[in-house]
Nucleic acid binder design. Structure first.
Length: 509
RNA sequence: GGCCCGUUCGUCUAGGGGUUAGGACGCAUCCCUUUCACGGAUGAAACACGGGUUCGAUUCCCGUACGGGCUACCA
């Protein structure tokens, strides 16, 4: 039987990075085994539905390259892949379970249950308490029929028999045993006719022929109920295998990573930006922060999984080849943003200059900067060794796109002296004259000049850099001068003394 | 509270009855470089605790502590 796995997010808002990792592991598992990766939208809670969330999920998968073989927006033979579009199906199955004696109708109102919770500490709807509640197990059959026919408020609950051990075989955690007496009679079909997660999940996994359920650890406790459902339906022979992933924890403090942690720690916890009417509900993502999708994937892959050796940089193909559920850890993994940055830096360094230029183009254009690819390719080559994020190219390299905005005052104070004015003017002359206009020849000429004048490199080179860039941080000066171009470089050198003098005057005053 | 899962450097992790407990991020120092980075080298840094089992436990078992998840007509 060929492997079929699904990623089944709920469209309740932006998909956070933990969800992306779950999708990634499902994707890698499917690809590794030559199976299918399916996207299913679990929108059974009408109250929590958020418009735009579905599109966000799909866009996120596309950005990260986790393209489903089947699913909402991707076609496939097992649709529809949105649970609200399958609503009628679940009612039938729920009623079938009632007929089979594994579920029952319950007429208790939310208020009545709320009341029961108030009166009894730790109230649960189970084999014990259900005897005193309003359900088809207690009410006379005629009464049940009457209420049903009258369209009275009701749900369908799973009938959990007490006194059984329920074994969950987990591919990551091993065997986990639950006592059925501890389990509650979960609602399967809600009063609005929609299924709960538990029912919809089992029905769809069965109908979609899912072979492996790879999901977050938060689902482990309810897996016992799911096993009971497979039994109730008589589907145990095709029950998927389970693998519960360790959670991603907050960068600091306690608890699992949550949506709010992005703002709290000043880091992205979403793949893409999410804009909501309320600014507090809007988030930045990895993409707009300037992460490359490949770096994001690589980072996420290693958050909870390891290859078994010391390799850390993985292409998607390499991940697919190396991936195995056996190498997924059991304990929660703390979100390490420093490591994420390191991955991005590595990927930017290794990236092709033309490819980087394409990434930089929209950023340059947005600032009104020159944004032709040949030029941006040169900028990429010049700057990529010190970029961590994509916007670094236009932010740290702003002087490559236009006039120097700010000259570093401290360097002016330390290095500038009006006596160097003739030297800078001479440098402008060298820049205008040097042929060919290349870094190596330029360097040779400038150093020759410094030597001929009896100056020290440490006196002149910093001024050269400052004149061209305004800052002491940056790429090799002569390479920079070449990218700036002969005319622009000469102009900056010629005008620099004025800027320096003015800055000196201002600090003095 | 109950149920379930987990616990190796600050972080991600390898390892597994006898190891100098390995790698990576971050940090520190040095080298390279008259910038900032990259790169290279070096260093500090861990088996939660207590009992067993064993010749020997970080590794196996049991407790404790701590952390996490679940406990909805949410997923």
């Amino acid at each position: 039987m060929s492997v079929r796995v699904r990623f089944a997010p709920s469209p309740t808002g932006a998909l956070h990075i933990g969800g992306v990792r779950t999708a990634l592991y499902n994707y890698l598992f499917a690809r590794h085994h030559g199976g299918a990766f399916i996207l299913r939208i679990e929108d059974t809670d009408q109250n929590r539905y958020v418009p735009g969330a579905e599109a966000y999920i799909i866009d996120s998968l596309k950005w990260t390259g986790l393209i489903p073989d089947e699913g909402l927006g991707f076609g496939g033979d097992y649709g529809p892949y949105r649970q609200s579009d399958r609503k009628d199906l679940y009612g039938q199955y729920a009623r079938e379970l009632v007929e089979r004696g594994h579920a029952y109708y319950a007429f208790d109102t939310p208020e009545a249950l709320e009341n029961a919770r108030q009166n009894a500490e730790n109230f649960t709807y189970n084999f014990h308490t259900r005897r005193t509640l309003q359900n088809s197990l207690n009410l006379p059959a005629t009464e049940v029929q009457r209420r049903l026919a009258g369209g009275e408020h009701h749900v369908i609950r799973l009938k959990v028999e007490p006194g059984e051990d329920i074994l969950v075989r987990d591919l990551i955690r091993g065997d986990v045993v639950f006592q059925s007496s501890e389990l509650d009679d979960k609602v399967l079909l809600k009063a609005d006719g929609m299924p709960t997660y538990h029912l919809a999940n089992i029905v769809d996994d069965h109908l979609m022929r899912i072979t492996h359920v790879i999901r977050g650890e938060e689902w482990l406790p309810s897996t016992a109920h799911h096993v009971l459902l497979y039994r109730g339906f008589g589907w145990t022979d095709t029950m998927p295998q389970f693998a519960h992933l360790p959670l991603i924890l907050k960068p600091a403090g306690n608890g699992k990573l949550s949506k709010r942690d992005g703002a709290k720690f000043g880091i992205p916890v979403f793949p893409l930006p999410w804009k909501a009417e309320n600014p507090e509900d809007s988030f930045t993502g990895f993409r707009d922060t300037g992460f490359l999708p490949e770096a994001t994937i690589n980072f996420l892959a290693l958050l909870g999984w390891h290859p078994g050796d010391d390799q850390e940089i993985f292409s998607m193909d390499e991940l697919i080849r190396a991936f195995s559920l056996a190498h997924i850890g059991k304990s929660g993994a703390r979100f390490d943003y420093e490591k994420a940055k390191w991955f991005n830096q590595r990927y930017i360094h290794a990236a092709d200059n033309a490819a980087l230029a394409a990434h930089i183009q929209p950023l340059a254009a947005a600032r009104g900067y020159r944004s032709d690819l040949p030029f941006l390719t040169k900028v990429a080559a010049l700057m990529k060794e010190r970029a961590t994020f994509l916007p670094d190219f236009v932010e740290q390299g702003s002087y490559l796109f236009g006039p120097v905005q700010v000259y570093d005052e401290e360097t002016i104070r330390k290095k500038w002296n009006p006596g160097f004015q003739p030297a800078l003017e001479a440098l402008a002359g060298i820049v205008s004259r040097t042929n060919p206009y290349e870094a190596a020849t330029l360097e040779e000429q400038v150093k020759q000049f410094i030597q001929d004048q009896g100056l020290k490199p440490g006196e002149i080179l910093p001024l050269l850099r400052l004149a061209l860039a305004g800052t002491m941080k940056g790429p090799a000066v002569f390479d920079m001068a070449v990218v700036l171009g002969r005319e622009e470089s000469a102009r900056r050198l010629a005008e620099a003394p004025d800027h320096f003098n003015r800055a000196m005057a201002e600090t003095a005053g």
